[in-house]
């Protein structure tokens, strides 16, 4: 592992829902600039981890450190503004708004004008609106969505909606982007394009990317570090090759008689 302070660090994080231990004692380190894959069978706790990192859930134990600062339990909006943006497994665009508005809304904190200025429509208000619009149009341009800017988001095909969600996440000018199953519903050709796009995103916007993904082709092809969880616990962590051949991972996915002794094969 490289030295220095990781961009995101989880230390012994726990999350319990009633009697269900969704996450028990997961620790991980994500270095700045990395493409980090989070894998595991259905119900392993991957999305729960995302929700803990982004503040939708408050961790029941352990620490979440972003750039050295504890963020566990902060409200989601605060965490988003600190530089952690995300996309959702089930796309959450505002269907009633245009594509451009969907992106612009993520720049609300940079509008540069208060309530009074908005009501009075001061020069700062119009400058702020124009700047937001320009920034949104730039992002739509680089993501190849310019032609769709004035469409209602709900009228877009699935793949384009995913890209709009990414544009919206980038509008926050994040340092860390969490992508929840970006390859869901893509065919193998589209998945190949996605791999390129993820690398390109990381390089162009100097991001750190965390990926929750079931498509092993994508995960193994693009991630520099892979972390595998099952039943809320870490079962393997390392390079794609290390994780791919790890007996516990094979057991978790293929349901072989338990090698790790976790009872996964019962």
């Amino acid at each position: 592992m490289s030295g220095g302070r990781p961009l995101l660090e989880l230390r012994e994080v726990h999350k319990v829902f009633g009697g269900l231990r969704a996450i028990s004692g997961v620790s991980l380190r994500i270095e700045a600039g990395q493409i980090f894959g989070l894998i595991g069978p259905n119900g392993a706790g991957k999305t729960t981890l995302f929700n803990v990192i982004t503040g939708i859930y408050r961790p029941d134990g352990g620490e979440v450190l972003f750039d050295g600062r504890p963020i566990g339990g902060l409200p989601p909006a605060r965490i988003a503004l600190m530089g952690i943006a995300r996309t959702f497994q089930n796309i959450r665009l505002i269907g009633e708004m245009t594509v451009r508005e969907n992106v612009m809304v993520a720049g609300h904190h940079r509008r540069g004008v208060g309530l009074l200025g908005t009501v009075l429509r001061t020069r700062r208000w119009s400058d702020g609106e124009r700047a937001l619009r320009r920034k949104a149009d730039e992002l739509l341009e680089v993501l190849g969505l310019s032609a769709l800017a004035d469409e209602q988001a709900r009228n877009l095909p699935y793949g384009s909606q995913r890209r709009v969600e990414i544009a919206r996440a980038l509008m926050l000018e994040p340092r860390l982007v969490l992508l929840d199953e970006p390859a869901a519903g893509l065919n193998s050709k589209e998945a190949d394009v996605l791999k390129e796009q993820i690398r390109w995103l990381r390089d162009t916007f100097r991001l750190t990317v965390v990926l929750v993904e079931h498509n092993m082709h994508v995960v193994m092809g693009v991630c520099e570090h892979v972390h595998c969880v099952d039943h809320g616990e870490t079962i393997a962590s390392g390079t794609p090759d290390e994780v791919r051949n790890h007996p516990a991972v094979l057991a978790a996915y293929l349901g072989e008689p338990s090698v790790a002794g976790s009872g996964a094969g019962s």
Binding site: T54, A80, V105, T118, E129
Partner: peptide
């Protein structure tokens, strides 16, 4: 003026999907 501004977009985002609104940094 409120409705046709960043505030209006933010309020409509809250109406449609509060979780998404939070995730894009809206208080």
């Amino acid at each position: 003026h409120l409705t046709r501004s960043s505030y209006g977009r933010a309020l409509r985002a809250i109406r449609e999907d509060e979780i998404a609104a939070e995730a894009v940094g809206l208080p």
